[in-house]
Write a protein that binds this DNA or RNA. Structure first.
Length: 515
DNA sequence: CGTGGAGAGTCAGCCGTGTATAA
DNA sequence: CTTATACACGGCTGACTCTCCAC
């Protein structure tokens, strides 16, 4: 039974009561009122509001910098600010980032508000050693001491009250300052991510009846607003890309759970009409209109290759990564493309129309594509295809790989193998972590016979990781179903966080379920 | 009507930490 | 029993998707 919250208007302290009811029951069998999910649905909230009451304590700021009085540059004394920025670099000395020119250049540019002229002449090793020793020092602090401290902060700042429910907040801590780590060859890597002050913070909460969060002594918030059309509690603008950051609720919360449920339902609808959509885009490959051909091939890639949509981005400002709609001709002839291409035998009409492919990917825009998808099916967007195909593949694989006589470990193994198939579809590829390579090396030198096992180990690891990261909803339900059917403990497949997030799905799975 | 940009929300990889397990 | 290694977990945050609205 799923724990669905219901309103408890009688309580003096506005906390919720959890009652075990199925989301498909009309009424809670204890208080005889509608469960929250359904009530929300019932009352429709057509104005698009996400909540009626919201109260929280605001964010937790990182502790202020404590100067070390270190002198990494020719014994020169640094201001506390300059010294702090230096510590960010010193902490990363072991990281590959600090070997990259762009990283160093950006860091140095932001740091040299001081009179330091050459990075090469700086010696960060002393500071580096200091920080390396920190985990040791922290270990000295007693375990309970740490836990109690953390627990207090969590209890005070880690929860909010939204519509009578005490809900867990996802990230209630402000991002600490540091050096920006972009992904890939990011042109801004190494730039200083500055301190966020209360004056940068926008608070969102109820206007009446709620206690508003207090800014730290001697400071004030940038703004306090009362916007119940959004779900965030706190926001600020980050200084590297100028984008907005938010504090929002935990995945186990009502607002997030409802969203997930909705997505699951969209997948269900797609299942019913996917063949129609496929037939249509195949036909569109031969359209007289170029735009339609473009659209159809883009859609084909998204469907067949589980590509992401991939929006246009500012060149020179952002990471160098690509998706379907931003694929360019030069990339198509490149290795990446061949790599994908080889995985798609058949569908000759796409392959033969070289002319198609070149234009399509160059000019098709995500927004246009999404508009088209919306016409094909209500709620359909590019990424729904990705999750849908993931689900279907997993389900098929599970069916193929599992036999009723398997014992539980065998069933867990086949689950992991099925996940590998899913990973292939999504083209997940990960570099094994460095520590892994190292331990592999040790194995190889010690016991040569073990070599044979190495490839297995390697793939097992990937399967596990994939199991953790390719969570979608039909996929989720079909694997939950399998657990129930074969008596595999759910705990063996999903960890605590995942089980909390998908409490609603775990409950609605029964043995007859099939995606 | 199309487009660009801001805002909101989701996804996913990395990494530190704590714990289980092996040596 | 102690120490070292492996592993799992969860927090963090950059990247991405999608929507909406002003122009």
């Amino acid at each position: 039974m799923l724990s669905i919250y219901h309103f408890d208007d009688s309580g003096p302290d506005r906390t919720c009561t959890c009652v075990n009811v199925s989301p498909f029951l009309s009424f809670c069998d204890v208080c005889l009122r509608l469960p929250l999910f359904l009530r929300w649905e019932e009352e429709k909230c057509t104005d698009g509001s996400k909540w009626r009451f919201l109260e929280h304590k605001g964010p937790v700021f990182p502790p202020p910098y404590e100067p070390l009085h270190a002198r990494p540059y020719q014994a020169m004394k640094l201001s506390p600010g300059a010294e702090e920025v230096a510590t960010f670099y010193a902490k990363m000395l072991d990281h590959e980032y600090t070997t990259k020119d762009i990283f160093r250049k950006n860091f140095f540019k932001d740091w040299r508000k001081s009179k330091i002229t050459e990075l090469k002449k700086c010696d960060f090793t002393e500071m580096h050693e200091y920080f390396k020793a920190q985990p040791e020092a922290r270990k000295q602090m007693s375990k309970e001491e740490k836990q109690v401290k953390n627990e207090c902060i969590l209890q005070e700042y880690g929860y909010c009250v939204m519509d009578n429910h005490r809900e867990r907040i996802g990230n209630f801590r402000i991002e600490p300052p540091g050096l920006f780590r972009g992904r890939g060859d990011h042109p801004k890597m190494g730039k200083l991510k500055r301190h966020i002050r209360p004056e940068d913070i926008i608070i969102n909460c109820s206007s009446q009846d709620s206690v508003q969060p207090k800014a730290p002594p001697g400071t004030r918030w940038k703004e306090v607003r009362h916007d119940n059309k959004v779900t965030w509690l706190v926001s600020w603008t980050e200084n590297i890309q100028g984008s907005i950051k938010y504090i929002m609720l935990n995945p186990s919360s009502r607002v997030k759970g409802e969203k997930d449920w909705q997505k699951y339902e969209t997948e269900e609808v797609l299942k019913k009409c996917v063949e129609r959509i496929r037939a249509q885009y195949r036909e569109d490959w031969r359209s007289k209109e170029m735009r339609i051909r473009q659209r159809a091939v883009a859609l084909y890639f998204i469907d067949k290759l589980a590509l992401r949509a991939g929006n246009e981005k500012d060149e020179g400002e952002t990471a160098d990564t690509v998706g379907c709609c931003s694929l360019r001709v030069e990339r198509i002839s490149g290795k990446d493309y061949i790599h994908y291409y080889n995985k798609v035998p058949g569908e000759k009409s796409v392959r033969q129309s070289k002319y198609n492919i070149e234009l399509i990917l160059k000019e098709e825009k995500t927004s246009i594509l999404n508009k088209h998808l919306q016409e094909l099916m209500d709620g359909l967007t590019a990424k729904v295809f990705r999750t849908y195909n993931t689900s279907i593949t997993l389900q098929q694989q599970l069916k193929e790989l599992t036999s009723p006589d398997d014992n539980i470990p065998e069933k867990i193994l086949s689950y992991n193998r099925a996940n590998r198939a899913v990973a292939v579809l999504c083209n997940h590829q990960r570099v094994p972590p460095k520590t892994f390579e190292k331990s592999m090396h040790n194995l190889q030198t010690k016991v040569p016979v073990i070599k044979i096992a190495i490839s297995h180990l390697n793939s097992d690891r990937r399967e596990k990781e994939t199991a953790l990261c390719s969570m979608t909803y039909c996929l989720l339900l079909s694997s939950l179903h399998r657990c129930k059917k074969w008596g595999v403990p759910i705990e063996k497949i999903y960890n605590k966080t995942q089980r909390e997030k998908f409490a609603w799905a775990i409950d609605m799975t029964d043995e007859d379920f099939e995606f």
